[in-house]
Measured scan of single mutants.
Amino acid sequence: TEHYTFHTEEQAQRAAKKFKKQGLPVTIHEKNGKFTLQVN
């Protein structure tokens, strides 16, 4: 499991699309105004 932190939801969504294209499951969590992208 890898985690990436982004300052905006837009950045997180863009990164999520790249991972999803590779067939990886992705979840985004919002915490304290930051967005954490979790790749399993």
Rank of each mutant, 00 (worst) to 15 (best):
K20I: 15
K20P: 02
E9K: 14
T8Y: 04
F35M: 02
F19A: 04
T8F: 04
H3F: 14
G23D: 04
V26E: 00
T1Y: 14
V39I: 12
Y4T: 04
L24P: 01
G23N: 05
Q13E: 09
I28E: 00
A12D: 00
N32G: 07
L37E: 02
K18R: 12
V26R: 00
K21C: 12
K18F: 14
T27D: 05
F6K: 00
H29T: 14
N32C: 13
Q22K: 10
T1N: 10
V39Q: 02
T5W: 14
P25Y: 15
H7Q: 13
I28G: 00
T36K: 05
T8W: 03
N40M: 13
R14G: 04
A16Y: 07
G23P: 00
V26I: 06
K17P: 01
A12K: 00
E2N: 10
T1A: 10
I28V: 07
T5N: 06
T1K: 10
E2M: 13
P25V: 15
K31E: 13
L37T: 02
N40P: 08
T8G: 03
K31G: 06
G33N: 04
L24R: 07
H3A: 09
T1W: 13
F19R: 01
G23A: 03
G33F: 01
A16S: 05
V26H: 03
N40K: 09
T27L: 08
E2K: 13
V26S: 04
T36R: 06
R14L: 08
H3G: 09
K17N: 12
G33P: 02
H7N: 13
V26F: 07
K21Y: 06
Q11G: 08
Q22H: 10
K18E: 13
Q13A: 08
Y4E: 05
T8R: 03
A15M: 10
Q13I: 13
H7G: 09
K20M: 14
K17H: 09
F35H: 04
T1Q: 10
G33C: 06
A12W: 01
F6A: 01
T5M: 08
R14C: 07
K34I: 14
F35A: 03
I28Y: 02
E10T: 06
T8P: 00
K17S: 11
V39M: 06
A16C: 08
V39P: 03
K17A: 14
V26W: 03
H29S: 12
E9A: 10
Q38K: 06
H7M: 11
P25G: 13
A15D: 01
K34W: 11
K21D: 15
H3R: 11
K17D: 14
E30S: 09
V26M: 03
H7L: 13
P25K: 15
H29N: 08
E9L: 15
L24Y: 10
K18D: 08
K20A: 13
K20V: 12
K17T: 09
H29W: 11
Y4C: 14
P25T: 15
H29M: 12
A15W: 08
K21Q: 13
I28P: 00
L24N: 04
F35R: 03
Q38C: 15
H3L: 11
G23H: 04
E30Y: 13
E10H: 07
H3K: 10
E9W: 15
K34L: 10
G23L: 03
R14W: 05
V39Y: 05
